[in-house]
Design a protein around this nucleic acid. Structure first.
Lengths: 334, 334
DNA sequence: GTGAAAGCGCTAACAG
DNA sequence: CTGTTAGCGCTTTCAC
C-alpha cells in the first residue's frame, strides 16, 4: 500500500458509525453531544492515533495557530541571551496552547520580512521583542489589522506591552547598596539613553536616593557610555571620586569595568563593590560572582503570548504589564 | 462595508473575465497559458495588490511552507550567540524561498515539542541545530517520514549534515601558532569530549603538530574541562609547564582563563598568548582582543535551509557538507 | 489556451 | 443529540 495516509476525521467517523460532524463536535466540545458518544469518540481517537490536520482546520476556521515573533537580526551579538531566553518562553507558552512560534528576523528599519508574513497571513498575531523608537512596525501592523503585543515599552500608550519593571528593580538594588554605603560613594554607568530601559534605570536610581533623602551627584552618574573612548573618559572621571561601589547598566559595561579595575589593581569586593543589571552566565561565573537583577526573560515571553492570546480571543487585557524583578545579592557587593 | 475582505483569486479572475484556474496557472507558471493573458494577470495582481492565501494553498498542495527549527532550551546561556545567529541565517534563507521558520524549543531528552509539531503537520521539514548523542530525534523524525538536516555531526552517516570544518580550523590555528612558538609550549583546554565538536578540535590540533613533525605532549592537553574544579586542576597542571600560548575550546573557558591569568599577574600577549575557537563579542571587545576562529553561523543556517529545500524538491544533496572556517589573528597572539 | 468541477480535511449552519 | 450540506481559497485533472 503506497498511500499510508494519516487517519482522519472520516476514518474515525466510519469506525464508529458516526458522521464527521459528530466527531468534530466531540473533539471541540462545541455544540450538544451526549457524554456517551463523546467518550467513545475520544477513546477511538486514542486508539487510532488520530491527529487533526491543522492546515485544514486553519482554512475553515480562518486561524493559523501561529504567532509571529519579531527578532532584531543585529541582536545576536550582545543581547542574544535575552532574546533567546525570551524566545524559549514564547515557544513554550505557544506549545501549551497548541500554537507555534514563527520567527521573523528583521534588520534595522527593514519591515519587508514582517510584511511578508503579514501579507501571507501566516500568523494570527505578532510579538515584537524590541520596539524601535519610530514605531514603524506598530503602525504597519495596525494598518494591516494584525494584533500585536510589545515586549518592552512603546511610545503609543494604547499598545499592549509587557516589560520588566526596570525602575523598581534599579530602585531596590540602589536602596540595598545605600544601606551600607554613603550616597556620595555610589557610581552609575549606563549605555545609550535612547533606549527607554536606561531611562527607567536612571529614574529608579534617583528614586532610591530620594527615598534616602539624598540626590546622586553628577560626578557619579555617567550615561550614554558606549564607545571605548566614552567608557575610558567616564571611568577616569568616576574613579577620581573614589567610589565604594559602581553599578553597571549591562554585561558588557560590567565586563569592561571589571577588566579595568583589575588593571588598576583594585580587587572586588574588598576595594570596590560592583553590581549589574542583567544576570547572565558571565556575571554568575565570574570570580567573585556579581550582584545583579534577575531578568526573567522566559516569563516575559510567556506572558506576552498569554496577553496576545487573550486579545485574539477578544478579551480585554491589561495594557501595560510590568513584571517584577528579583535582586540577586552575590559576593561582589558583600 | 464590514467585510473588507482581502482580494482573492476569484476577484482578479472576475476583473479580467477569466476563470480562477487560468489565473492560478498564470501565477504558478504550470500548464499551458498564452504569454498575453499571463502578463495581463500578473499586471492585475499588482494593481489589485493580490496575495494568495497560503493556508488554502497549503491545504490543496499538501505543503506547509514552514520549516521547523529545533533549538535546545538550555542553550540560551552559554551558546546563545551561536544559535541565534544561526536562526537568523535560517530565517533569512527561508524568507527568500517564501517559507517561514517555526521554532521548536526542546528540553533535554524531551521530544514532546518536536512530536507535537510533527504530528500537527505544521512543517515540511526540520533543521536540528544541535544533535544529541543518542540520535533520538533523528530516529523519531525518520519514523514519521519527516525530512530533516542536522547542523553539526550525526552518528548516522546517511543523515544530511552541515557543519563547520572544526578539524581544519583548529589545524590552521594551531599551525599558525606553531610558526612562532615551539611545540612543547602550546597548551590546549577543551570542554566535554561527548560533544563531537571537541573531538574534531583535538584531531585538528594533533594534525597541526603532525604536519610540523611533532606530537603534543600530554601535559599540555586538557579535555573534559567543565566544572570550576576541573578547570582549576587543569590550569594548575598546565601552568607548571610554563606554556607560551594557550588555546581554549570556548568563550567561557577563555574568560575563566583570562581572569586567572590576570590573577597570576600575567599579561596577554606579553607574558602569554591566548587564542580561542569561537568568535563572540566577548573575545572581540576584550583588551587585548583575542585571536579566534570565525564561526559563520549565519551561513551554516542558510546552507541548512538550502539543503533541506533541495531534499524536499526531491533532489539529491551532498550528505555531509563542511563549511570553511576563517582565522582571525588579533593582538592576543601577536 | 481556457473553463468547469472536484477535492484538500476540517468547521459550522441548518435540518431532523 | 446527530446527520447533511455547504463552504474555507486554492490547485488540478479533465473536457472543450
Amino acid at each position: 500500500m503506497e498511500k499510508n495516509k494519516k487517519t482522519q476525521l472520516e476514518d474515525i467517523a466510519a469506525a464508529l458509525g458516526l458522521s464527521k460532524s459528530t466527531v468534530s463536535r466531540a473533539i471541540s466540545g462545541k455544540g450538544r453531544i451526549s457524554t456517551d458518544t463523546r467518550e467513545r469518540v475520544l477513546q477511538c481517537i486514542k486508539e487510532m492515533n488520530y491527529r487533526p490536520n491543522m492546515i485544514a482546520k486553519s482554512l475553515s476556521e480562518n486561524k493559523t495557530y501561529n504567532i509571529g515573533t519579531v527578532i532584531p537580526m543585529d541582536s545576536a551579538e550582545t543581547e542574544a541571551p535575552f532574546f533567546q531566553t525570551c524566545l524559549m518562553g514564547i515557544s513554550k507558552e505557544c506549545a501549551v496552547r497548541d500554537h507555534d512560534a514563527v520567527i521573523i528576523g528583521t534588520e534595522k528599519n527593514d519591515l519587508s520580512q514582517l510584511k511578508r508574513v503579514v501579507d501571507n497571513r501566516k500568523v494570527d498575531g505578532i510579538i515584537i521583542t524590541r520596539p524601535v523608537a519610530d514605531g514603524g512596525m506598530e503602525k504597519m501592523l495596525r494598518e494591516n489589522g494584525m494584533p500585536f503585543v510589545v515586549i518592552g515599552q512603546s511610545v503609543d500608550k494604547d499598545v499592549v506591552t509587557v516589560d520588566s519593571d526596570h525602575t523598581a528593580g534599579c530602585r531596590e538594588l540602589t536602596s540595598y547598596l545605600l544601606m551600607s554605603n554613603p550616597p556620595e560613594s555610589i557610581g552609575l554607568i549606563l549605555g545609550s539613553m535612547e533606549h527607554t530601559v536606561n531611562k527607567s534605570r536612571l529614574s529608579g536610581f534617583e528614586a532610591a536616593f530620594a527615598e534616602a533623602g539624598s540626590k546622586p551627584s553628577v560626578q557619579l552618574v555617567y550615561t550614554d557610555v558606549e564607545s571605548e573612548l566614552q567608557f575610558s573618559k567616564a571611568m577616569t572621571a568616576l574613579m577620581k571620586q573614589q567610589p565604594a561601589c559602581i553599578i553597571c547598566g549591562d554585561d558588557m559595561l560590567c565586563m569592561r569595568l571589571l577588566a579595568e579595575l583589575s588593571n588598576l589593581g583594585l580587587s572586588v569586593p574588598d576595594d570596590i563593590k560592583v553590581a549589574s543589571f542583567y544576570d547572565s552566565v558571565f556575571l554568575d561565573s565570574y570570580l567573585p560572582p556579581i550582584t545583579s537583577l534577575i531578568y526573567n526573560a522566559t516569563e516575559l515571553g510567556a506572558t506576552a503570548v498569554s496577553q496576545l492570546m487573550d486579545m485574539l480571543e477578544g478579551e480585554e487585557v491589561e495594557k501595560q504589564k510590568l513584571m517584577h524583578f528579583e535582586m540577586l545579592v552575590r559576593r561582589s557587593t558583600m
